[in-house]
Amino acid sequence: MANNNDNFDHVIVKKPSVGQRMFKYRYFYLMFIPVAIVLLVFYYWPMLGIRYAFSTFKLKQITLRTGPDYSIGLGNFTRLLSSDPFHAAFKNTIVLSFINLVLAMVCSVAIALLINEIQNAWGKKIVQTVLYLPHFLSWVVAASIFMLILSAGTDATGADTSNTGFINAILLQIGILDKPVDFLTESKAWPTVWYIMNRWKETGWGTIIYLAALSSISPDLYEAAEIDGAGRMKQTWYITIPSIMNTILVVFILNLAKIMNVFESVFVFYNSLVYDVSDVIQTYTYRVGIVGNDYGYSTAIGLFKSVVSLILVSASDIISKKIRGYGIV
């Protein structure tokens, strides 16, 4: 498949010369100018700051006078890689956000397909509006709701259960538990609860893009399939899913690039009893950043994150090329 693509490129290159093609597309270059300006000024210009990753750049009188000191070379990186909490945070970041990403994809696509099956226009409207609502709550609010619902109460001996949250109260009532469980301080339970909170807040919102893609599928395709005698399941499998596959992959890969950025949802929800499973790179950076205004070190962490993202995205791009014949770039 990859070969096909190359051949195709090859043939086109042979026809008109580069100059001719540039002339043909002259209006497109014009159209790209606004994009290019914003891109260069607000994204590429600040990138010069990446050089601070190789420097000692702190709020120091000496730094203010003479600028960052580049003599440490890779010092920030050796410091980073020798830190135990950083290793744990790196592992947690990958595990938490990757599983969350896969869950997000599966849940949003499934629910988008089901919403698409609702025939009643009003019903559809109400369902969508309600499912989007949690997206508008901030993470702090979402986390405090979950903490309240999941609370194990305020008595460590478990004898007095008057302050337990909704979930524990139900589980105690029907006899599944004989003592309240604090889901938020149990390392085994915390990731699951975090995934559920993320899905609660973002699944509905995540369906928007798939619903838009679904609405772009030509009705002709279904009519044709119906004539061929394909049932509902078959239509979904052979028409709907392939039609939105491109969107699914693009969303997946784009989100893969953001995988290292998970922060606020963890920050408002974690605690010291579950650091082993919950501390992620950004929360770690936050704590380090609070103590010292060490721009060099924090830029180094940023650069490290970027390199990992780059590897992930390139890998998925290559996989996408293998499977579909073309990548996303």
Binding site: D84, P85, S272, Y275, V288, D294, Y297
Partner: peptide
């Protein structure tokens, strides 16, 4: 001190974990 700025955050994580685990 620089040494504190560089190490205190990591150390505080350990302290937090120690306190929380032992007390609960």
């Amino acid at each position: 001190r620089d040494a504190i700025a560089e190490n205190l955050a990591d150390l505080n994580v350990v302290k937090d974990v120690v306190m929380a685990n032992a007390v609960t």
